[in-house]
Design a binder for these strands. Structure first.
Lengths: 142, 142
DNA sequence: AAGGGTTATGTTACATTATAACAGATTTCA
DNA sequence: TGAAATCTGTTATAATGTAACATAACCCTT
């Protein structure tokens, strides 16, 4: 796994729009879609989708935001890693909450397999579906 | 990882539309989007998106087709596994080809991590970005 | 064989997610 | 200063996915 990003730039280098999007994502513990962000930021002057998507592109590339493909949604992340590194999420099917997991062990588990087929891996993106602790308990109790 | 599907039903139990979609996916080695399928199957009477999506839902649930979230695309699979089991793909950034990998080692690599946070994992879906052998060679040669 | 429940089907219309393309403003820095 | 690059706002549209409804087929039970 090699790294290929715009390394952890200090937050001061973010533009106003990028900072607004990042702060909004940080203020939620659930992932938000681009259009959720658009609704929340309309009063701050972000009125059209490209404004949101452009900010998200940068934040994802920099590694402070991840995209959850399964949900078409975005979530902030404070693990200090680059956009190019492996990422793994536990997504609760019941409540939609998301926890980021350490992907290191997963990366080492897949490398032999990808190498065996001659594939040059750059980034792992994994999403684990299931039930978070609280929802699992609710289910077995109820 | 528990299993939760409509187990490997014989193909005779597929409906006409499901069989058409499955055969089309099998005849390609690249993933197809729902709208790619719609184009190819219009003459067979599949004229509107819900017809495609309904067939895909069943095929994915049954485990003979997988959805590639990153690409919004679908690919057939002949590993004899259920919809609920872990799945891992190597997706080439250059040519779009997709190879399915064995996910067993990956599942055992993540289980301790998900359990540590009290998360009850049901299914892993992982996509590894990178370059396939041929594209990697082209890049380093050129 | 009639009828009742379920499943599959076709269709329209719409919701959601994402991008192309362009023009103006701002920054950077040689 | 002025050329290159970047960020900005905007319109319009593409691509992906679903809700809702009416009909038809199928399976089962009596």
């Amino acid at each position: 796994m090699t790294v290929c990003c715009d390394h952890h730039p200090p937050e001061e280098t973010l533009t106003r729009n990028q900072r607004l999007v990042l702060e909004t994502l940080r203020s939620e513990d659930k992932p938000l879609t681009a259009y959720n962000l658009l609704d929340r930021l309309r009063d701050d002057g972000l009125r059209a989708p490209p404004q949101i998507y452009r900010a998200l592109d940068r934040l994802v590339n920099v590694g402070v935001v991840h995209r959850l493909d399964r949900l078409n949604a975005f979530i902030s992340c404070n693990h200090n890693h680059c956009g190019g590194q492996g990422v793994l999420f536990a997504v609760c099917d019941a409540c939609g909450s998301v926890e980021e997991l350490k992907a290191d062990t997963v990366e080492s588990a897949i490398l032999p397999t990808t190498e065996a087929i001659g594939f040059h891996a750059v980034q792992l993106v994994g999403e684990v579906r299931g039930l978070c602790g609280p929802c699992e308990r609710k289910k077995t109790d109820g």
